[in-house]
């Protein structure tokens, strides 16, 4: 099972990497939406976890672009956010986000949310 993690924070990427590899996932990393999008062009992944606030290409645009490519219409995308302001999450969902994960996350919670959206 491969997870693409997209976040401009190295701390968060490192923590995701640790938690997910420990749970047996293979983890790909991208530091912004553009890099993530490029990666999806080359790599097959089972689920994407993305931050919203990122330079170059933010999470909302990233999700929109992913959904715009026919190949990834059924790819689960989880929005990683500390934003409670419902609007960010809603924007993410409107763009095509499958679900969300709230930072700071604990490892079990993270895995259980992933299991909610992937086979």
């Amino acid at each position: 099972m491969r997870v693409l993690t997209v976040d401009d924070s190295r701390t968060i990427l490192a923590m995701l990497h640790h938690t997910l590899t420990n749970a047996g996932f293979e983890v790909l990393q991208a530091e912004n939406g553009q890099v993530g999008l490029d990666m999806l062009g080359r790599e097959d992944v089972d689920v994407v976890i993305t931050d919203i606030n990122m330079p170059v290409m933010d999470g909302i645009e990233f999700i929109k672009q992913v959904r715009a490519t026919g190949k990834h219409q059924s790819l689960p995308i989880l929005i990683l956010t500390t934003e409670t302001s419902q609007d960010k999450r809603d924007q993410g969902r409107a763009a095509g986000g499958t679900g969300w994960i709230v930072k700071p996350f604990d490892p079990e919670k993270l895995i259980s949310v992933i299991n909610k959206v992937v086979h």
Binding site: M1, T21, Q29
Partner: peptide, 22 residues
């Protein structure tokens, strides 16, 4: 998967695929 990840627990690059950081 688990077996593989025990072999190289910290290094996703060891899977032989690019991790893809620019």
């Amino acid at each position: 998967n688990r077996d593989r990840s025990t072999d190289a627990p910290e290094d996703s690059a060891s899977s032989g695929r690019p991790v893809g950081m620019q």
